[in-house]
């Protein structure tokens, strides 16, 4: 049995209660267990407050479990000395690209972590080139980040992580501030990094349409995993998804209604193209 890249075992976590607050914080994660294998493309799906971002932050030791344990590439996140090694292997990008870019020029930003870690100039140059190529913004390398669109800035953030040659990228709602076209392109980029470079992708989102390209979906609610499976298995139960406060894309609604009316539409048809093909076949 292959050892998982990320192994959460019975993890419980509650955010510290703010002093003076009357509210008792309920745990954001409750006895949650999840294994993510090297090379997987996993989407963590849930509405705001379901615990999905907390789960993501446990995966690279930004948060540590109150109970249970998280093992990343064989390292226990409770061991503080392992944090730099864990974060070099599991990188994270966040919702707002503006909060994660620091340098005044794109290529300096991508080189930042490498510089801090003391890599040689030639090594840095090579890795930055590779990373910029991989995310498709090599032509923007000399521009200041504020000249870029939101989608381009997220690519800079991803390149900064790629330059560290990680095993895994966690994208925490990284597309929710982008326009629909950039969002689709970001999804394609994740799929490509996963397929071509073998990078494990963990994408945290509340959007079902982003989940359709994943190999596996992990559905969260109230700090627990309520279901996990392939998109086709999970996305055909529309009523359940709606009950979990997710927006149902019209393409899936239509497929479900037609299926209920006796149309033969395969359950694993989840993308717009697949659904169109199934309907046209009838």
């Amino acid at each position: 049995m292959l050892q998982p890249l990320i192994d959460l075992q019975q993890v419980t976590y509650a955010y510290p209660v703010r002093p003076g607050s009357a509210q008792q914080e309920s745990p954001a994660l409750r006895k949650l267990s999840l294994q993510i294998q090297q090379g997987e493309y996993v989407v963590i799906l849930g509405h705001n407050g379901s615990g999905k971002s907390t789960l993501a932050r446990q995966c690279n030791a930004l948060l540590l479990p109150d109970q249970g344990q998280v093992i990343v590439a064989g390292m226990d996140t409770r061991d503080l000395a392992s944090h730099p090694a864990i974060r070099a292997r599991v990188g994270m990008i966040f919702q707002n690209p503006d909060n994660q870019l620091i340098a005044t020029v794109v290529e300096d930003d991508v080189a930042w972590s490498l510089t801090v870690l003391g890599y040689s100039a030639s090594e840095i140059r090579q890795r930055v080139n590779e990373a910029l190529e991989a995310v498709g913004i090599a032509d923007l390398r000399a521009l200041p980040p504020h000249k870029l669109s939101g989608g381009q800035r997220q690519r800079v953030a991803i390149a900064g992580i790629l330059a560290l040659r990680p095993d895994c990228i966690i994208a925490d709602e990284a597309t929710s501030m982008l326009d629909p076209v950039s969002r689709q392109e970001m999804g394609k980029l994740f799929a490509r990094l996963n397929r071509d470079l073998g990078i494990t992708i963990v994408q945290v989102t509340h959007l079902l349409e982003e989940a359709v390209y994943a190999q596996r979906i992990v559905l969260m609610e109230q700090g627990q995993i309520v279901q996990t499976g392939q998109p086709g298995q999970l996305l055909s139960d529309i009523e359940r998804l709606r009950a979990l406060k997710l927006i149902i894309p019209d393409s899936l609604s239509l497929a479900a209604r037609l299926r209920a009316a006796g149309f033969r539409i395969a359950e694993d048809a989840v993308t717009v193209e697949q659904i169109a093909r199934e309907i046209a076949r009838e």
Binding site: D179, V181, Q184, D250, S251, L254, V272, I275, A276
Partner: peptide, 10 residues
């Protein structure tokens, strides 16, 4: 660079 709503794409 605009996408029609998903239903309209379908």
């Amino acid at each position: 660079d605009l996408a029609a709503p998903p239903l309209h794409e379908l």
